[in-house]
Design a protein around this nucleic acid. Structure first.
Length: 656
DNA sequence: GCACCTCGAGTTCA
DNA sequence: CTCGAGGTGC
């Protein structure tokens, strides 16, 4: 079986050489020949197949769904900068903390983030970024990617992060194949890569020619990021060859200018340049905002702009009565889809941008999704009409109200059909009562046919089953399905119902916060202004909004009807058990803990009425300190704030 | 009274 | 995603 081992080593060596972009020592033809020989051998001795054999990369495993993976080290995203001024600003902020800063500039590959965990040098798990804390297990698919090693050159335990992408060439090939077979086309290589990685059947992923660059070693023992990258190369990871160590920010700007020019010569798509401080030991000191690290940022290339005619401006009415002007555009293709509408937010927005009806305007896609009017091409302006804000609701004709100091106008007519339909759509939406099958169109139809007007009518639809089945496009099966989903929604926890009610200013987050404090809708309906105002993050305006909602006769009647229909009013989930030691107190966590996750500590504190924060101040009550604490630990000592070490925390949590 | 952050509301297309 | 409003903390 020595030959088998020999073949595996040779093939892996070739792969490694190929992807580290040195001249490979064997030819493609030779590679294929060796591969064939290996396959024959492995067929003969199936029980002797080596773990790191390249044949093991060829997929075929089908799973039913993706498992969730908790990232031990959070997978952060980056802040963005869009011009030189912002880059220099980023530099300036860092120089306030460290002098003589060196940067590493890297191409920002336009793909999909991935986290790879190796145990003893063997690929153990690959996962998506997800929300940064919890991702999805995509190990079975990642194993099919040639440039991701199944076995490293050293038997180490390591977690690395990188980007899975599809080359421009593979993308074109894939799309032309899909076109031939009449399948829908991918908009861009990134979507194609993401779509391929999220296949349940890994043989499909294997056929998609994906590639990967690795660029981050979160728990690196090295002093600098650049050294980490060198080490990653040594382990056998494919690291992008165009990474540059920069002595100062001006070298970074040179790098950006160079790649802005050369961007199209690359075989893969990039959407910017990532700038990282090289000195890893300073990361904690430079710190993090709630979302992103302050020691790195992403310069984004300007988005593609498309010029089109703004034919008209129309107005829509939201569930709150808010009036939004909308641009009706001459349809144009931009980044894979045809755009004919774009929001103009409000009157001031239109006036500030000097947009007039009949203008030619530049459109871009914000975040590659939502169309946005960027500016007007004044050189092409002729025969235009001024934008005039309306004063009556376009649907019901009611005079609009513009509260003092507000930018938006509102239709306050409670009977306005547009508002009522939007309210119902909100009620059934995913984060609210989550009634599947009752889409926007169906709600609108049911409303217009007179089947539903108020929320509670939804729960009486079962009495009109025969009439519903008669409707065009409906049958026994679809109606039954909808009715079943409606029944199920009665069991939702309080926060969903509270959010669904659509009280002004109460979104999903605040609904949950409030539900935890009151446990059920009845208690909440009796709450006094002060009681609400005392809750952290609930101020006078929201308190007033809530009190007024529950003072309104119509709302109370409607709630009674929902109650009678059997809709659950109580909060299901861990109730807060107030504990003197925690209630109303501010906790700060620093360092790492191997016996408990940060999230669990946070939950524990919150379940006892306390809350957590990211930075230490005079108002901090307790600082919890784990291994390798950051600056927060020093702050706590300086400010004389009580500290819980790992032992204390363990005893509080009840861990022995 | 201001700076900073978080949240809510509306949003496009396939 | 983008905007404005609301809340908090100085």
């Amino acid at each position: 079986m020595n030959r088998m081992q020999e073949l595996v080593d040779l093939l892996n060596k070739y792969n490694y050489e190929y992807y580290t972009l040195d001249a490979p020592s064997i030819s493609d033809a030779e590679y294929d020949r060796l591969m064939q020989e290996l396959i024959v051998l492995e067929k003969k001795y199936p029980d002797k197949v080596l773990q790191n054999s390249p044949t093991q990369k060829i997929g075929g495993q089908i799973i039913s769904e993706f498992d969730k993976v908790v990232h031990n080290v959070g997978m952060f995203s980056l802040g963005n900068v869009f011009n030189e001024e912002e880059i220099l600003d980023f530099d300036k902020k860092i120089k306030k903390i460290i002098h003589n800063v060196e940067y590493v500039a890297e191409l920002k590959i336009d793909g999909m983030g991935v986290s790879l965990e190796y145990k003893n040098g063997i690929l153990f798990q690959a996962s998506t970024r997800g929300d940064g804390t919890v991702g999805e297990d995509i190990t079975h698919n990642v194993k099919t990617i040639k440039s991701i090693p199944l076995k490293l050159n050293e038997n180490v335990d390591i977690v690395v992060r990188g980007e899975i992408y599809m080359s421009k060439k593979s993308f074109e090939e894939l799309n032309s194949l899909r076109k031939e077979s009449g399948q829908s086309l991918f908009q861009n290589p990134r979507n194609a890569a993401a779509g391929s990685v999220r296949q349940l059947d890994s043989s499909i992923t294997a056929s998609r020619k994906l590639d990967a660059f690795l660029y981050h070693y979160p728990l690196t023992p090295f002093k600098t990021h650049y050294e980490s990258l060198e080490y990653m190369k040594k382990l056998g990871f494919k690291v992008n060859p165009n990474i540059r160590l920069c002595k100062n920010i001006y070298e970074v700007i040179d790098y950006i200018n160079k790649w802005t020019e050369l961007r199209n010569t690359l075989p893969y798509e990039i959407d910017g340049v990532v700038i990282k401080v090289n000195d890893v030991t300073k990361y904690d000191e430079i710190g993090y905002t709630a979302k992103v690290p302050k020691w790195a940022t992403a310069y984004k290339f300007p988005a593609q702009l498309v010029l089109t005619k703004l034919k008209d401006i129309i107005f829509t009415v939201g569930r709150t009565g808010m009036i939004t002007p909308n641009a009706v555009l001459e349809p144009v293709k931009i980044m894979g889809s045809t755009v004919s509408r774009a929001t103009l937010h409000n009157e001031d927005y239109v006036l500030n941008k000097d947009i007039k009806i009949g203008d030619y305007v530049y459109i871009k896609k914000a975040g590659d999704v939502i169309p946005e009017v960027v500016s007007v091409e004044l050189n092409r302006r002729k025969d235009v009409k001024d934008f005039v804000m309306i004063h009556k609701c376009p649907i019901c004709g009611e005079y609009l109200t513009k509260p003092d100091g507000f930018v938006d106008s509102y239709c306050l007519n409670e009977e306005c059909p547009a508002r009522n339909i939007e309210k119902l759509i909100h009620f059934v939406s995913r984060d609210a009562m989550n009634i599947e099958g009752l889409g926007e169109r169906i709600i609108e139809d049911f409303y217009n046919y007179g089947f539903i007007k108020d929320f509670s009518d939804i729960y009486n639809l079962k009495n009109k089953k025969e009439e519903l089945i008669e409707l065009e496009g409906f049958g026994n099966k679809s109606v039954n399905n909808i009715l079943e989903n409606i029944e199920n929604s009665k069991n939702n926890s309080m926060e969903r119902l509270l959010f669904a009610l659509g009280i002004n200013g109460i979104g999903a987050k605040k609904a949950k916060l409030i539900s935890k404090q009151f446990s059920n809708i009845e208690d909440l309906s009796k709450a006094q202004f002060d009681e609400l105002n005392d809750i952290k993050d609930i101020g006078p305006i929201l308190s007033k909004s809530i009190v007024e909602y529950f003072r309104n006769e119509d709302n109370l009647n409607e709630l009674q009807k929902l109650k009678d229909a059997g809709v659950n009013f109580s909060y299901i989930g861990k109730k807060i058990e107030m504990d003197e030691e925690y209630a109303g107190k501010k906790f700060v966590i620093t360092g790492s803990f191997d016996f408990v996750s940060r999230k669990e500590i946070k939950e524990f504190i919150e379940n006892k009425g306390g809350y957590t924060s990211e930075s230490v101040s005079k108002k901090t009550n307790v600082v919890i300190v784990g291994k390798d604490p950051g600056k927060k630990y020093e702050d706590a000592v300086n400010l004389n704030i009580p500290i819980w070490n790992e032992e204390v925390l363990k005893s509080k949590l009840g861990i022995m």
